[in-house]
Design a binder for these strands. Structure first.
Lengths: 107, 107
DNA sequence: AATTCATTTGGTAATTTTGCCAAATAAGCA
DNA sequence: TGCTTATTTGGCAAAATTACCAAATGAATT
């Protein structure tokens, strides 16, 4: 694999890596219903606010979210809604996996 | 976030995490054009065969690939083709990021 | 200006991931 | 059977990720 190809796949992996965490998937799902402030997400997630903030930074740096400061709160929202299409296919994989598991048990 | 919700997002994240590596994205892309044996992928990737084999295991364990041994070779193929839909959106994110970068420079 | 509230940043320890080597396994062939 | 080829597995050191706490920043309010 040449350097240029390598770089292209690294860029893609960076975006996917940003989504590859349960909390960050939850955030994406939550923001699909509209923007939310950091404190709102913290309440839903139940982790330390600094942890939530860092997850949001990861998603923002990857280009998946954008933020806007209004008053003393920072609101985050999805920048690229097509990200949501991922969920359907991931769910398909999980269903297929469940089938595979139960088939393995039957053997 | 309650335990059940947590578990659901962990399962989803496991699938996405399996894709979150440049070499594994390359493998998915390559297999979208048809099955390939481990050695074929190794030639394209240029890493140690054991490294390639482990990447394939990660994708297989996640339910993204399936394998079949024929003779002394093992062939891998996509088990859930909808995975390919991801690439389009990831590309959109990258294009948006490129725009964002150049806009930042102009300022 | 001092205080408060929301958020980010720095630092750190624990955990996970990665890639290579060497050794084990498995199938086909001499 | 012994040998070669293809792949997987075990082990390990280096690198990356994660979550928390404490401290810093920044805007609004007193």
């Amino acid at each position: 694999m040449d350097a240029k190809t390598q770089a292209r796949y690294e860029a893609r992996a960076a975006v996917i890596k940003a989504m590859a965490h349960p909390t960050r998937l939850f955030i994406i799902d939550e923001l699909s219903r509209g923007e939310k402030c950091v404190c709102g997400l913290r309440d839903l997630i139940g982790a330390d606010i600094s942890t939530v903030s860092k997850h949001l930074s990861v998603l923002k740096d990857a280009g998946i979210l954008e933020d806007e400061k209004r008053g003393q709160q920072v609101f985050y929202r999805l920048r690229v809604p097509c990200i949501l299409n991922f969920f359907g296919c991931v769910e398909d994989v999980l269903v297929a996996n469940a089938r595979r598991m139960s088939a393995a048990v039957r053997k």
